[in-house]
Design a protein around this nucleic acid. Structure first.
Lengths: 243, 243
DNA sequence: GCCGATTTGTCCGTATGTATC
DNA sequence: CGATACATACGGACAAATCGG
């Protein structure tokens, strides 16, 4: 629904870069040219370019122009990007997916859970264990905690489909920010029971705390990935000076 | 040296958040208030707030205000953030560091290297192998490839200190963007030779391609981390609609 | 439920500074 | 030196969301 002008320019430029309308290492049209092209102000063009810069698609060079530095991603089985659901990721990665709900219980946070998840003691929670299949192979084991106060009406059926679709669609929630930590951990008995790790004794683990648009945490998830099918990508830009 | 107004406001607010001048979950002063406080235009305040949002420090809420959602990071031995050198990271993480140069050779890229690193065949390179110690314990094994055409005059002495300091200080280079991929890989014989992994048979591996301000890649690095002392943190914000 | 005040979101036009060529 | 290009900053306008009376 948000058809902000800067966003349509952003999407248009993004597509032109991905489809190589602008070649790799080539300069994009100057800001002035883009102003005429899109019939908007300079600020609006610059906002779109700023987003592309943050995506690692372009690199602005003072006094020279804006260079296309986008390279198509090498695909692993499962590449992690921004905030997206498992279902969205599989679609982006063009994979067939399936989800088995191993456990679906309602619990109350105690001190141990508070320390690990960030949910205050006494908070009623859904605890869900899910096994994710890609192309028929079990690769990811998810442990989800959802706050019942915010995410009400969750069922095993929804959990086997897309929880995020339910949140944003049915509940009208807005997912805002997610803080993620990536570590490498020893396999557990549960991991070994469901996932064929061959001779690996570790897994890639993403733990994330997700907040709604009121800044309230409603989810804590630990997502344990098979090493062979895991890849996390990131573009960082250097902050000048200080720090 | 860039003492842009928005940057000083950004740094000031950041510090106030970190030192809990504004409490967790509390609203920051409104944009209008900040305008008066800093004596600047609204756009300038908004730019500073946008950076804090990207850092996951605050969350703006339409019609309500801007909420502080910053939580201090739980420290692992080594936490990876934006683009920063090993030396910078250890300082941020408040650790004693040391670097041993295991190998320092000059090579020319062949097809195999081109495919792996992105450097064209025939490009003259420095290849450096370094072992990183934290508090006296060997934890990270780095394999660096630097383009000789861009990074000239590298020596083992510089490699044992900070290459980035040399690049930005002596050569006057500007590091712009870095594309990183994080995976989990089996240990190699070299890993085992230098690092005590106990019963782990995997390592956390960060491979990165770094570009200068001309959009030219000058570095390819594979950084292999001990699982127990590795942590990668990230804040993602959900893009509305589309995608 | 309506209205007005407050607050953030988007967009515009302009001016000035700085780097490149 | 002048033209071009990006960087920063200002001020103003209107829209959209929220909240209190």
């Amino acid at each position: 629904m948000p058809k902000a002008k800067y966003d349509t320019i952003y999407k248009d430029l993004k597509e032109k870069i991905e489809t190589e309308v602008y070649a790799y290492q080539e300069m994009l049209p100057s800001e002035h040219t883009l102003i005429l092209e899109y019939g908007c102000s300079r600020n609006t063009v610059r906002r779109a370019l700023a987003e592309l810069t943050a995506d690692g698609y372009v690199q602005p060079m003072h006094g020279k122009g804006v260079r296309n530095i986008y390279r198509p991603v090498e695909q692993a089985a499962f590449t992690v990007g921004g905030i997206e659901s498992f279902k969205e990721s599989t679609i982006r990665n063009k994979r067939e997916s399936e989800t088995h709900v191993l456990q679906f219980t309602e619990i109350t946070a105690d001190e141990k859970i508070e320390k690990r998840t960030g949910f205050h003691k006494g908070t009623p929670l859904y605890y869900i264990q899910r096994l994710r299949f890609l192309n028929g192979i079990p690769l990811i084991l998810d442990h989800n905690y959802f706050s019942k106060e915010i995410v009400h009406g969750l069922t095993p059926e929804i959990a086997s489909q897309s929880v995020y679709e339910y949140l944003e669609g049915k509940l009208g929630m807005t997912i805002a920010t997610s803080k993620r930590t990536l570590t490498v951990e020893h396999v557990t008995q549960i991991d070994e029971k469901y996932i064929d790790l061959k001779d690996y004794n570790c897994m890639a683990v993403i733990t994330s705390q997700t907040f709604d648009d009121n800044g309230i945490q409603f989810e804590y998830t630990q997502s344990r990935h098979h090493p062979d099918y895991f890849r996390f990508q990131d573009v960082a830009t250097r902050k000048k000076a200080g720090l």
